[in-house]
């Protein structure tokens, strides 16, 4: 009986975690700086949003 209950709890947890998930939303993932003159650097802020229903973790950013 206890075993059945534990198994049920286990499956409920799995079900819950698979339904709640983070979702990264970036409306504008491309940016065009246009024509820039020679300078040292240019910068841009990409706006992001977590459109999911659990915490979104940005693990790493890899530049080209």
């Amino acid at each position: 009986m206890a075993k059945t209950l534990l198994t049920t709890v286990f499956f409920l947890c799995v079900a819950a975690s698979s339904y709640a998930s983070p979702s990264l939303r970036i409306d504008k993932p491309q940016h065009d700086f246009g024509t820039v003159t020679q300078e040292d650097k240019v910068e841009h802020f990409f706006e992001i949003e977590n459109a999911g229903d659990s915490d979104l973790v940005i693990e790493k950013l890899v530049p080209s």
Partner: peptide
């Protein structure tokens, strides 16, 4: 230039 964003999505 590109940047890859790695997340838990």
């Amino acid at each position: 230039k590109t940047v890859q964003v790695h997340t838990n999505d």
